[in-house]
């Protein structure tokens, strides 16, 4: 197979996935329609995480802070200043960009285990800040963005982002754009350098690449994508709360990416989707089997992490690529 054939096949596959998601808008029952819209936004979060973890090999335990930067960056001006959805999304992105630049600059001085701990601590600081400024954020309780604010007006259109179909399409557009962006990055020269850094940092430096700059760029792109997911979440679902900045929301994207397959472009979507339904479905099942017992998603998340690390470190698509479909990006 030549490189051109691989290229065409790859883009075609991704176009098909987006087309399938578009078609699902018209056939899914209400409940699953809503779930999928949410999953697509969370998958954007996972794609941002995957860019750094999968392709550059940097395991962050603090990406909740970037999601939160987008969430609050969009939500706070919309709630307190009455800004519209477009301006809110823009400030969300800007907040994520600024935060990831600052965090990258500091945290990338460390490697390995220290990097994991440092990112976790910075994220913890952001989490605590949401409580410290509780008079604006209302901490755990969170803020609700009014329906009136969640509209997008441009060029004569006035879109109500609270209506299910519009919300679904907005989520799909964001998802498709980020998917295409990820694909373009990993197939580019820049993507090749990122993988080289993951494989052997010292060798990459001795080929004349500024490794720190490469990692910083990847961190900023990753953080900004996660912030885009956070901002979209605030706007589309109208809720901004501190729980999204907690450690758990740093662990979840890691889990989604591990499940779907790190360093695969479609793994994040697959992982997010499966995990969402696994938690959702198991909750009801366990409640039916064990009435009166205290069950939550904690155990499922924990088991999934341990099982994945022990038995499927490459995840679903990573295993498929390793065994059968080598061209999968």
């Amino acid at each position: 197979m030549t490189r051109e054939e691989t290229s065409i096949r790859t883009w075609l596959l991704h176009a098909l996935v987006v087309a399938a998601l578009f078609a699902l808008n018209f056939v899914l029952p209400d409940y699953h329609h809503g779930v999928l819209a949410r999953v697509m936004v969370l998958a954007v979060f996972a794609m941002g995480y995957n860019l750094l973890f999968g392709y550059v090999g940097l395991l962050s335990l603090g990406h909740a802070m970037f999601f939160a930067a987008g969430l609050y960056g969009a939500g706070l001006p919309m709630v307190h200043l009455g800004w519209g959805a477009g301006a809110g999304f823009a400030t969300g992105l800007a907040a994520g960009l600024a935060l990831s630049l600052a965090i990258g600059f500091l945290a990338l001085r460390t490697t390995g285990v220290a990097f994991m701990i440092v990112t976790m601590m910075f994220s913890q600081v952001v989490y605590l800040l949401t409580f410290y400024f509780g008079s604006w954020t209302r901490g755990d309780e969170g803020l609700v963005i009014q329906q009136a604010e969640r509209r997008l007006s441009f060029a004569g259109f006035d879109l109500d982002l609270t209506s299910p179909a519009t919300r679904y399409m907005a989520a799909l557009i964001l998802f498709a754009v980020v998917l295409a962006l990820t694909l373009a990055i990993v197939r580019s020269s820049f993507g090749r350098v990122l993988v080289a850094i993951r494989e052997n940092e010292e060798r990459t430096r001795m080929l004349g690449f500024d490794v720190f700059a490469g990692k910083l760029a990847a961190t900023v792109v990753s953080g900004t994508i996660c912030a885009a997911a956070g901002a979209a979440y605030a706007i589309l679902f109208g809720y901004v709360g501190a729980s999204f900045a907690s450690v758990q929301y740093s662990i979840l994207p890691l889990l989604w990416v591990l499940l779907g397959g790190a360093a695969t472009t479609l793994g994040p979507l697959l992982g997010t989707l499966l995990m969402y339904y696994l938690i959702d479905g198991s909750g009801d099942l366990l409640k039916a089997w064990l009435p009166g017992w205290n069950v939550s998603h904690l155990g499922i998340v924990g088991l999934a992490l341990v099982v994945l690390v022990l038995f499927f470190p490459r995840g679903i698509l990573g295993t498929i690529r390793g065994r059968w479909v080598r061209w999968l990006p």
Partner: peptide
């Protein structure tokens, strides 16, 4: 990553 999983399992 595995001990994060163990953390959640023990909490559960």
């Amino acid at each position: 990553v595995a001990t994060i999983g163990i953390l959640y399992i023990i909490q559960q």
